[in-house]
Every structure is written in C-alpha cells, then in structure tokens.
Design a protein around this nucleic acid. Structure first.
Lengths: 125, 125
DNA sequence: AAAACATATGAGCAATTATTCATATGTTTG
DNA sequence: CAAACATATGAATAATTGCTCATATGTTTT
C-alpha cells in the first residue's frame, strides 16, 4: 500500500517483502543527482543516439559545413537535415553562423568530440 | 537523376545546383567511419538516452545491486527494470552475476563512468 | 517434488521520433 | 521590388520505444 522505502538495520536478505537492502537503497538515493539533471543528461545522449545525427557530427569533425552540403554528403533531404540540426542545436552540440544565404554549422564545443571518442572506445573494445 | 556527388575543382559557390562544395563533401566522405560502426555508436548512445536507464547507471555507480533493489530504489516495477537492464546489457554497459536467487548487476567497465562524466560536464558548462 | 521467490520475456498499448511534403522565413541578385 | 536561392518549420505518417500485465525460467527452501 505504501510506496516508501523502509529503512531497517537488518542483514542482507532481499526482496522477499518490502524490506530490501535498505542500506544500499539509502546510499543510492542520497547520491542520485536531482531529477532535472538526470533528464538533461538523458536528453543529451538522445541527441547522440541516432545514425543521422552521428553522421552529421562526424561530418562536422572535418569542416564547418552548410546545410545543403550536409544533405549532399549524407545523401538526405535538406528538410531532414534541418530537422536534425535543430535537435543538435537544442542539445548545444552544434551552432550555426550565417554566411550570406547559407548557414554554416559547426561543432559547438570539444565535449562533442570527447564524448564520441569515448563512445568509440567502448564499442571497439 | 543521379545521386552521385560530382567532383569538380571549382570555387566556393554552393547549393544552387548539384554542384556543392565538392572538396568538403569528398573530405567528409573519406573520413566517415563505416556504416556499421556509426550504427553501433548510435545504439550505444541510445542506451544512455533514457532517464530510467541513466538512473540505473547512477545507482550502479554506488554499488552492485540486484534487480529488486533497483526497482525499489527507483520506485519502478521489477518488469520495467528488467527490460531496461536487458538493453543496458546488450549495449555492454552492465553485466549481471547470479548470487543465489538474485542477479546482481554491476557496471561493465569504466567507459560508462567516463561517458556519463563527460556528458555531465557538457550539460553543466 | 512442491511452494516460494527472483528475474526474464512476449504481447499489447500509448507515447515518442525520424522522415516526407508543403510551405514559410530570410537573404541575395537582377 | 521581384525572382531565385538557402534554410526552417508545421502537419502527417510510419517506425520505434517504454511500460504494463501475464507468464515463463531458474533457484532455493521445506
């Protein structure tokens, strides 16, 4: 009936009732970052979690590129690329500067490279 | 009619026809990792891209924990947690060892910590 | 071996998401 | 200022995803 975690200084039994490993549960809950930070983190990684966006980021590793070049390179529609750039911009992974008619996109900061590098290390290990 | 990228040593005009910034397009395409690697990378980041899974990972930063303790800590169903653990296991972010009736989950390697740290840096900057 | 317990998993559903199409916004050129 | 060009965006749609419920698998206890 109640959802709250009971705390009791007992042994290491687990799960047979509402009495779980109270010590661990408490420790974990104390260390857990606030809800909005967890949300922001998940949103950030979501931005990396799509092949099209990953390809855009890899493209921007090499050069600052306008939307239509990105579309040409990745062989996708300008619209599709624009939509994805919006998400990347929201996650502050890329920025754009206007140059005449075009908008040139570029990596917003070095975290992008670092995070992708670490991800690469993990999948290659 | 054709989808192939034309290469022509021309100036810096862009986008008004099929002739884009050929040099950039070529450079980018040369440096682009193979399709399956891009896919794996995106899949990896997808695993980080959900609040529940992020919370599970933060929990495992503190201790190795069994499924039902995770469920208790995060105040979610055992089933929901199990489903998410399966995804995390597929991404090789966590592993589980059996201890009696329980399965104790733990972080698979240090990349998990590093990647989340880098993500944290980015959202806090 | 049966009952109890811990975890895993398949089906179903609601919510989210990636793309397309049509069109709007903003810039440059004639 | 009109036409052309580059990009952005809203609506619609198909695919994916996260959770629930029911149940299956595997372990321990009696």
């Amino acid at each position: 009936m109640d959802n709250e975690v009971k705390m009791m200084p007992h042994g290491i039994e687990c799960c047979d009732e509402e009495e779980v490993h109270a010590d661990k549960v408490q420790l974990v809950n104390e260390q857990m970052p606030p809800e909005d930070r967890l949300y922001d983190l998940a949103e950030l990684f979501k931005a990396f979690g799509d092949t099209t966006r990953i390809r855009i980021l890899f493209a921007l590793f090499e050069a600052d590129i306008c939307v239509c070049d990105l579309a040409a390179t990745l062989n996708m529609t300008q619209s599709a690329i624009s939509h994805q750039l919006r998400l990347l911009k929201q996650a502050r992974l890329v920025s754009g500067r206007r140059e005449g008619k075009q908008i040139i996109y570029y990596l917003a900061d070095d975290h992008v490279r670092t995070i992708i590098e670490k991800g690469m290390e993990h999948i290659l290990e």
